[in-house]
Amino acid sequence: MVCFNRVITFRNNYDNDATTFSPTGRIFQVEYAAEATKQGSAAVGLVSKTHVVLVALKRNAEELGSYQKKVIMIDDHLGVALAGLAPDARVLSNYLRQQAMSSKMVFNRPLSVSRAVYSIADKAQENTQSAGGRPYGVGLLVAGVDVTGPHLYEFQPSGSVLEYVGAAIGARSQASRTFLERKFEDFPNATREQLIEYGLIALRDTLAQDKELNSKNTTVAVVSKNEKFTIYDDENVQQWLDKLDSLANSRSRGRQDDDDDDDEDDDDDEAAAEQAETTATATSGDAPTTTQDRAPDAMDLEE
């Protein structure tokens, strides 16, 4: 794992449980849990003034296996996309569903998105401060609409929660973020259709060169004030893929960002192979957009 390289001296000392601080004040078990979210396939979320969109890439473990569900509906106004350990996501979304039901039962109102996401954040924090459990190994994008409008939150195993205009989690999601950072100023006024297109383009940027989005591996979900949380899968998602194809047939990538390597699951052979491939083709530039900025590091965002 990447983290081992950074702290090679202390290996096996401070990273055995979530209740031990390293001498620099870090909690490695929590950081490793965050790594688990980067092993999962990518999910992308975007918000306009009216809509929230989630798009996600589904994986199948083997050719004859089914594709892993990536988007879970919580309530009519709320849903999540996951990256990482799917069973952990099911536990958290089950909890969210209980919260949503309770809000309807007790107050006759839908659960607010912030209250929803902080409820699981506080639950996740407990697992980072006491023994007898492990941190959750999943990241979530929580999308929903409430009286204050549409919202998109990113949830991390550390119990950290932040509200974004556009966010991406999972394998190679840095490529998506790069796209989102370039386009996010257009999101607020984007239509429902445009927002989904932006989402699909961002998701496509996470793909290896020989992979493409198809109706089997792509999930789209939308929610707005007047539209219940709707998930498009399989034949239903084709309409959106068609839109994407009419927009630009070939991939918008002429480069591959090598800045994102500390996000990457280097030990994942497939991903490493994919990256090697894409790096090799970086100069050939088969995409229409050729000159693009290199992806800035997420933590270092000087203009």
Partner: peptide, 12 residues
């Protein structure tokens, strides 16, 4: 500290 320009300003 603002770690990403994708964060919604004045929230969080």
């Amino acid at each position: 500290i603002i770690t990403s320009k994708l964060l919604v300003p004045n929230k969080n």
